[in-house]
Design a binder for these strands. Structure first.
Lengths: 260, 260
DNA sequence: CCAAAAGTGTTATGTGTACACCCATGT
DNA sequence: ACATGGGTGTACACATAACACTTTTGG
C-alpha cells in the first residue's frame, strides 16, 4: 500500500484515536484593516467553506483539542479561548453533505462510516492578534483564509448558525471580555478599539463618549505618540496596562458597561 | 433469565439506543419556603447524590433528551430549559467511581464497558414551578429530593462544579432571564420575588429599591389582595403580565438591570 | 404600645447621551 | 481655506443607592 498523504492519513485514523460523535469547531476572530475577520477553511474538492475544527483525542480535554486546532491553523499558542455553546441537533448536517465530501476526499470506505454518524459539535471562540497569526492549510487539498465577519461565504452544515451564535454570545458578554486586549497589537488607536466594539455590537458608537468611557476604566494608558493616517489629525496611540487587564480577567471585573 | 427491573433494563440498553460518550445533566431549580432549591437524585446503593441526567438517544436532539429527563423526574412539560456549558475533562469522573457504582448496580459485565468510557456532559438548567412538580424516583433503587442551593450534599463526579457553573452563568445573565415568571406561582409577593434574586446573586438587595425597579419595568401588576404572613403588614400580591414577559423572552429585552 | 416587616418618598451621586467646540493634517 | 476626522468640555436626563418616614398586623 502506498504511503497516504494527510489528511487522508489523519482522517482514516479517526475511529482509533478520537472520541466518536463529537467534534470541536472554532470561531477564530482577528482584527485587520478596520474590520473583524473570521478564519475559515475549505477542502479543495468541496464548494463550501467550513469552520476550522477537529475531534477530541481519547486522552485530550476538549479545551486541548480546540487549542490544537488553533495551533495547527495559526501557529499560535497561549491564546484566548472560550467555549460558548454546543450544537447537536440530529439534522444539523445536511443529508448527504458528509457522504458527498468523504467520497470526494476518497476516504477508505470501511473507515468512512465513523464520519457519517451523527456529530455533536462543541463550539469555541478565540480572539487572536491578526498580525501574529499565520494561516496554515495543506496545499494539496485545502484552502484557508480570513473573511470579513459581514461577508461570510456559503458554509458547510450549520456553521453559519454557529458563527451567529458566537457573535450574539460575545455581544451579550462584551462587558466581561477583554476584546481589545486580545485582538489588538501592543500599540493601537482609539478608533481601532471602537471599531471592534462596533463590529460586534453591529451599530455605531459615539466616538467621544466611547473614548471617555474606555479611558475612565483605567486599563488603558496613552502613549506620547501618534499615527499618521490621512488628511486629518493623527490619532494618539495607546497601550493596555497588562496587570490591570489580568486582574479584570482573574476576578471577573467588568471591563465595560453592557449598554455603551 | 428473569425479567429485569429498570433501571437495569434501561442501563443495559445503553449501547444500543444511545450515542456513546455523551451525557446530559440537568440543574432543575425550584423555589419553595423562601429558598431556592435544586433537584438531586441518588442510587440507593451509592452514597453520593447526582444531578438528574441521561443520555442522548440516537434519534433525539440534545434538548429533547434534557426535556425527557425533566419530564421523567418532575412530570412537567413545556418548561424553561437552557443549555449553559459542557463538561468534558478527561478526569472529570473520579477513577473507579463509575466502576464501583456499576458493580453495586449489578450491570451485566459485557454491557458495562459502555458506561466506563469517558463521558462529556452537556449541562442544562431549568426553572420550574415547585408546586407544579412531582418528584419521581424508582422506589426499588433510587431516591430523589430537593436541596437548598446553599446546602448541597457530597455529589458524584464533578456535579458540584456543574451546579456552581450554572449558578454563576445565571448570575451573569440574570437581567435577561425571566426568573420570577418561571419560578413563582401565578400570584406572589414582592419579598418572594426578591428572595429569588438574592439567592442567585448571593447578597442582600435593598427592599425598597428592588420593589420600585421591578414595578417600573412594567411586567408586573399589583393585585388588590394581600397575604397574611405574621406579625406585620401583609404584603401585596402581584402577578406577571404574561404578554409582556413573552415579548421580553422573544425579543431579548432586558427584564432587569444587571447591577441591581 | 411595641416589634416586625411592608410600602412610599426624598435626595445625593453616578452613568449614559447628545452635542458644541477646538485641534491637527493633507489637498 | 477647507474637508476630514481626532480630542476635550459641558449640560441634561435618567438610574442607582442610601435612608427617613409611614402603614399594617400580631402579640
Amino acid at each position: 500500500m502506498e504511503k497516504e498523504q494527510p489528511p487522508f492519513q489523519t482522517l482514516n485514523q479517526g475511529p482509533d484515536i478520537f472520541i466518536p460523535n463529537i467534534s470541536v469547531d472554532c470561531i477564530i476572530l482577528g482584527f485587520d484593516s478596520g474590520s473583524l475577520k473570521v478564519l475559515l477553511c475549505k477542502f479543495k474538492v468541496s464548494e463550501k467553506w467550513m469552520l476550522p475544527g477537529g475531534f477530541i483525542a481519547k486522552d485530550e480535554d476538549p479545551d486541548e483539542s480546540a487549542l490544537r486546532v488553533l495551533k495547527d491553523r495559526t501557529g499560535l499558542e497561549n491564546v484566548y479561548l472560550k467555549q460558548f455553546y454546543f450544537f447537536g441537533k440530529k439534522d444539523r448536517i445536511g443529508t448527504g453533505e458528509n457522504a458527498d465530501m468523504l467520497k470526494r476526499l476518497n476516504i477508505h470506505e470501511e473507515k468512512s462510516q465513523w464520519y457519517l454518524d451523527r456529530f455533536i459539535s462543541l463550539g469555541y471562540y478565540s480572539l487572536i492578534k491578526y498580525n501574529d497569526a499565520q494561516v496554515f492549510a495543506n496545499e494539496d487539498y485545502e484552502e484557508a483564509g480570513w473573511f470579513d465577519i459581514n461577508e461570510i461565504p456559503p458554509l458547510y452544515a450549520d456553521h453559519k448558525e454557529i458563527i451567529n451564535t458566537a457573535i450574539s454570545t460575545i455581544r451579550k458578554q462584551i462587558g466581561f471580555i477583554p476584546m481589545g486586549y486580545e485582538l489588538l497589537p501592543e500599540r493601537f488607536t482609539m478608533p481601532e478599539l471602537r471599531c471592534i466594539y462596533e463590529a460586534i455590537l453591529g451599530r455605531e458608537i459615539d466616538r467621544r463618549n466611547f473614548q471617555r468611557k474606555m479611558l475612565s476604566i483605567g486599563y488603558i494608558q496613552p502613549l506620547n505618540e501618534t499615527r499618521k493616517a490621512g488628511a486629518h489629525k493623527s490619532p494618539n496611540l495607546y497601550s493596555f496596562i497588562k496587570e490591570k487587564y489580568e486582574e479584570a480577567e482573574k476576578y471577573g471585573i467588568q471591563v465595560m458597561s453592557n449598554n455603551l
